[in-house]
Amino acid sequence: MNKDSKIYIAGHKGMVGSAVWRMLEQNGYKNLIGKSSKELDLRNQQNVQSFYEIEKPDIVIDAAARVGGILANNDYPYQFIMENLQIQNNLIDGALKSGINTFIFLGSSCIYPKLAKQPLKEEYLLTDALEPTNEWYAIAKIAGVKACEAIRKQYNKDYVSLMPTNLYGYFDNFDLKTSHVLPAMIRKFHEAKLNDKPVELWGSGAPMREFLFVDDLAKAVLFVMENKPEEHLYNVGTGKDITIKELALTIQKVVGHAGEIIWDATKPDGTPRKLMDVSKLNKLGWQHQVELEEGIVKTYEWFLQNQDKIKEVKM
């Protein structure tokens, strides 16, 4: 690994991809490649293969995906399974055919069974049923993990998968129809503060979730890229979780909303708990650095400064 290595970051304009780009630049990697979805449709196999043949990257970091929360997964199941399969299959298979030796595949903690023992260990993959509200996305990501594992086993290439817990941070999606819980809450509490109204939230507030600031994931990507760990799958998280109700109260405090919080228990809670066992990556030397309230402050500050740039996500 050297600073002149040609690195392609798929999805470089998204929250994760842009964080990885910034982290690599900050650490002296200047030969970075990024293509917008208009420049390169990752769902098109021939376009991806042609891109690889022309650019010849040394390393591929796959941060490209169709993502969303419970509502989006529930309303658009076909897009969530098929587009994610198309994107990652084209990137992974194209990289193999092009002789690329290093590939980092980014997934999600939703690959683990809904009722798996906590905290979630890497070996729990495929041991029980998935959470129904996001199984379409999860199945696609599981396929990506197994494809990278198969390439590693059969071709002895450095293809590794990182499974982060719930991410948030700069360039997050704040669209109320398609966003995840933390950015959606930031926007809801902010707008309720401006309008002096209560905030209505889905579910009971009882489920427990773990949250990782996106820059910490970017540091994990850099760490894995530079250290080439021996196994194919690593969890990335803080190893700490809180209830959704506690999250709401923390965001309410950061935003400065003083009104009532109304919980709609008729809406689904999703998985009861999702806490990652991050001991494998911790033992190698990576640790998260940004604690939750600090990360929420950073994210809310970014939200306030970039409201004019925040786009509504179309499915």
Rank of each mutant, 00 (worst) to 15 (best):
L32W: 11
N73D: 09
V20D: 00
E191M: 14
K30N: 12
F174G: 00
T299K: 04
E210Q: 11
G94N: 04
F80P: 01
N44R: 12
G69I: 07
Y78H: 11
K309H: 10
V224G: 02
G99K: 13
N44T: 07
R43N: 15
V16A: 07
A150H: 10
V16Y: 00
A63S: 14
G94A: 07
M208N: 11
L194T: 02
K311F: 04
K309P: 00
C148Q: 05
N235R: 12
V224I: 14
E200M: 12
I87D: 00
V16I: 14
G295W: 04
K253I: 01
K146I: 09
N73M: 10
F171Y: 12
K35D: 00
M23C: 14
K157R: 15
W302I: 02
P119E: 06
I104W: 10
W263M: 05
H288Q: 06
Y8E: 03
W202S: 11
N195Y: 06
Y112W: 06
L130E: 00
M276L: 15
I9M: 05
L167S: 05
G28L: 09
A65T: 07
E260S: 10
L40Y: 08
R187S: 10
I7A: 03
E131R: 11
V16E: 00
F189I: 04
V224E: 02
K240C: 05
V60A: 07
V60H: 08
P132A: 10
E246V: 07
I92N: 02
Y168E: 01
V254G: 04
K157S: 02
G256I: 12
N2Q: 13
A143F: 13
V67T: 09
N84Q: 09
W202D: 05
I244Y: 03
F51P: 00
Y159H: 05
Q252D: 03
A218F: 03
N173P: 00
P183V: 02
N73E: 10
R187D: 06
S50T: 12
D158Y: 15
L120H: 07
K153S: 04
D158P: 00
S161F: 08
D241E: 11
L130V: 01
P164K: 12
P113V: 05
K197V: 02
M163L: 15
N47W: 04
A143V: 06
V278Y: 03
L91W: 07
L24D: 02
N282K: 14
L96I: 03
V160K: 12
D93F: 13
T238Q: 09
D216F: 11
Q49V: 10
K309F: 07
A72C: 08
G17C: 06
A258M: 07
L125A: 05
L281Y: 09
A64H: 05
A19Y: 03
H190R: 06
I54M: 13
S279R: 14
L212S: 02
K245R: 15
D75H: 12
K114M: 15
V67C: 01
D196K: 15
K309W: 01
K309I: 04
L106Y: 06
K6F: 08
N195K: 15
I100H: 02
E83L: 13
L182V: 06
S279P: 01
D128G: 13
D175K: 09
I33C: 03
Y300N: 01
K253H: 11
Y170M: 08
Y155D: 05
H232W: 12
K197S: 14
